[in-house]
Amino acid sequence: MLVQKWTLSLGRYMMLLARTFKKPENFRMYYRAFMSDLELLGLNSLGIVSIISIFVGAVVTIQTAFNLDDPLVPDYYIAIATRESIILEFSPTIISLILAGKVGSNIASTLGSMRVSEQIDALEVMGVNPASYLIAPKITALVFFNPILIMLSMFLGMIGGYLASVGGVMSTEDFMYGLTVDFNAYHITYALIKTFVFAFLIVSISAYFGFYVKGGAIEVGVNATKAVVSSSVAIIVSNYILTQLLLV
């Protein structure tokens, strides 16, 4: 029963994606939608991503320092550990999970209200492909902007660590040295691949839950919650799969 329901949902999700990537009726209108989605889904997340990244970077540094409090381990190891946890996991995965909550609920509830107020039907009757017009610009916007956000988050996470070292957990020279030593650029590539995939999953899954709302305000709320839960699970699972594929 449950398996049948999931298969059905997966099929409908795939069909929605197929409709989403049809040729646009008018590139200028899509570009306009892209620009406003870029602001709504991308730029508007800069604040929260910055604050979280700085604080988490600082906390990770303090905790690592606390755990590596051993005269045999040189202090710059703390910075290496901080750097690696931020680049590999914190920035790409945790920030994407936070965006799944922020952006995902926004997308699902916007599309859901458009569905129940028949705005999606109105587009359809005009001859506009609503899946493509409403979803494709959002996917493009987040897939384009998420990597930028994540790079910023990495940078600010390390700033946070630096501030912690200024605060006294370790010497700032050791911290700066540790950030650069043994640096593997492939880890950044790995993180960026993850963020592309996560951005795509967040938007497409949330859009699916919004687009097919049936009913009224209550169902819009219910589906917005489902959107956040499902896209978070999708992120976690694909994180595991991608890590297996790319790092092992």
Partner: peptide
Amino acid sequence: VFQGNALFDSLTIEENVTFALNMF
């Protein structure tokens, strides 16, 4: 014309009326 109007609530009245013109 839908029973519940179905106006695009994020667009101004003018943008609503010109929507199809802009598109097509």
